[in-house]
Amino acid sequence: MEKILSMMAGSVWKIHVQAGDRVEEGQQVIILESMKMEIPIEAETSGIVRQVMVSEGDFVNEGAILIELE
């Protein structure tokens, strides 16, 4: 199981996928908001979204699990 992690601390601004969606490598799955900027988070591998671990508005730390892929 692959995990998509947050690369920095910030809040979850937009979530582009939901459980069951297929994502491709390099696809934008979540946009964080940090340091007044939009920080896109991309899938590093292709797969099916097993679970989205966060909701819009959540604060996340660096390294937090955002999405689990299978």
Binding site: M8, M37, I39
Partner: peptide
């Protein structure tokens, strides 16, 4: 490269 971490320097 703003695509990653907004290009912030760590």
């Amino acid at each position: 490269q703003t695509r990653y971490m907004g290009g912030i320097l760590d």
